[in-house]
Design a protein around this nucleic acid. Structure first.
Length: 458
RNA sequence: GGCUCGGUGGCAGAGUGGUAAUGCAGCGGAUUGCAAAUCCGUCAACGCCGGUUCGAUUCCGACCCGAGCCUCCA
């Protein structure tokens, strides 16, 4: 079988992927905290790990992909307070919107989507276990993980406790034994959401849910755990500490992390006011354009998001769909995605730019091919597109649907094209060109081909 | 301060111990009534300085520059 290679954050090396059980692959990706709309940076890991999910499904009979919904968190509590609603109203609204937005990016839904609030019991038993094993302690209404109790704490993020102490720049809460200790359970006031526990009315710490839910839904240990680079520390480091110390074992074999999305060369942040939500961008560009843009850089490199990036993505997709449109009457040969150059590229640590190059190569071959070879190249192009979650739209629709509601209707355009056709037949090119210029001004581009005139929205 | 990652043509972006993918843009041509789309051709790059080597963009070291993380931010 073809070998999949992945860069493991834990070892900092590209390794051959060897599953625990080839019959059952387990993948867990950190999902959203549902208190606002997902921005384009939130979408990157979703698209990247969707790509991985698709590759894994092509290689193995069963892949279980879990992505959590964090529906209890201080930011959620704050948002609910602002809106004078319960947290359920907030989390339900943004969970739904998140699912809708991610579906627009043509990402497959995960097999499991566990919610933190449905898993309070497993979290509490994990805390109990950690306390019993001497890795956690209760203090001042909190339960804290004792980082000094784990010799390999810091292994994932490549730090040690001394470094962290040296770099500490935040005042340490008085109830912590050592500054690196982190919260497993925190007290809630009476008007805050909470649950009864052996340590009083309270709520779980952030890292806890992933450890508990992985155990509850996937098992003691999983193959791959993914997320954004920023999660390496503290989130994944702490998750690893909780699971390794609470349950024993390796917990995760391969840790994968994607780099950030920057906006026009700057970090995306609320204070800079350059946060772009997926929903907002979907009003301007097709979801497939956003997906393509997110895949155009290797996942471990920073991606600079800009209008130019999106325009390039759109241009590239246009050329693919153009080739498909031009070969509409040719029946594509059936080709297995696993047999394509794009798949080979993806096996090498998800080399999506290289896979895209393969797309271009087949597209060009299709454009040049005679009728017989065209079937093969078209099949190739479509197979690779299928593999990558691209090119699934109808080519005709791709060019004639509009992302916005402005612009002339299809009927209107066809009507004017008929008039232009007549003018051309009369060799009245001035009149014909006038129609074309007028449509061009309204964002419609015409193409006169041997079999008539086609049009597309720009 | 500690830790981590990166610097490839005008732009985007792969990759390699030995002629440096691909796309966009540019230029020339074919095609077209003119365009568009497509095709053909073409220009152009490995931050800096040492080291290892027959040979370094690729490995090692220093330097310069940029990015990220350092307790709840994807």
């Amino acid at each position: 079988m073809a070998e999949l290679r992945l860069t493991n954050t834990l070892t900092r090396e590209k390794e051959i992927f060897e599953p625990r059980d080839p019959e059952r692959i387990t993948l867990y990706v950190c999902g959203p905290t549902v208190y606002n709309l997902a921005h384009i940076g939130n979408a990157r890991p979703v698209v990247v790990f969707d790509m991985l999910y698709r590759v894994l499904r092509a290689l193995y009979p069963q892949v279980i992909y879990a992505r959590n919904i964090t529906d209890i968190d201080d930011k959620i509590i704050a948002a609910a307070r602002d809106r004078k609603e319960g947290i359920e109203a907030v989390t339900q609204e943004f969970t739904e919107k998140y699912r809708e937005d991610m579906a627009q990016l043509n990402t497959l839904p995960p097999d499991l989507e566990p919610r933190a609030t449905d898993n309070i019991d497993p979290m509490q038993s994990l805390i109990t276990q950690l306390i019993e094993r001497g890795h956690a302690y209760a203090a001042d209404g909190h339960v804290l993980f004792d980082v000094t109790s784990m010799s390999s704490y810091g292994a994932l993020s490549g730090r040690n406790l001394d470094d962290m102490l040296a770099g500490a720049r935040v005042e340490v809460a008085s109830y912590k034994r050592s500054p690196g200790d982190f919260v497993l359970w925190k007290p809630s006031s009476q008007d805050e959401p909470g649950w009864q526990s052996p340590w009083g009315w309270g709520r779980p710490g952030w890292h806890l849910e992933c450890s508990a839910m992985i155990r509850a839904h996937l098992g003691d240990a999983i193959d791959i755990h993914g997320g954004g680079r920023d999660l390496i520390f503290p989130h994944h480091e702490n998750e690893r500490a909780q699971s390794c110390c609470g349950y024993g074992g390796d917990f995760v074999r391969y840790w994968l992390h994607n780099a950030y999305v920057d906006m026009d060369g700057e970090k995306m942040s609320k204070s800079l006011g350059n946060v772009r939500t997926v929903r907002e961008l979907l009003g301007l560009y097709a979801g497939e354009v956003l997906r393509f843009a997110l895949l155009s850089t290797h996942y471990r490199s920073p991606l600079n998001f800009s209008g130019e990036l999106l325009d390039n993505a759109k241009t590239a997709l246009n050329s693919f769909y153009q080739a498909l449109r031009n070969s509409a009457d040719i029946e594509a040969e059936h080709i297995r995605p696993e047999d394509t150059a794009a798949f080979t590229a993806l096996l090498d640590d998800l080399n999506t730019p290289k896979a895209i190059a393969a797309l271009h190569s087949s597209c060009k071959a299709l454009n040049k091919a005679d009728a017989k070879m065209a079937a093969t190249f078209k099949g190739e192009l479509l197979a690779m597109g299928r593999m990558m979650g691209l090119l699934g739209n109808d080519p005709e629709q791709w060019f004639t649907d509009s992302a916005s509601s402005s612009g002339p209707t299809a009927e209107d355009i066809e009507h004017r094209l008929a008039a232009r056709l007549e003018a051309r037949a009369r060799k009245d090119f001035a009149a014909a060109d006038a129609v074309r210029d007028e449509l061009q001004a309204q964002g419609i581009e015409l193409e006169d081909g041997p079999e008539g005139t086609t049009w597309r929205r720009l």
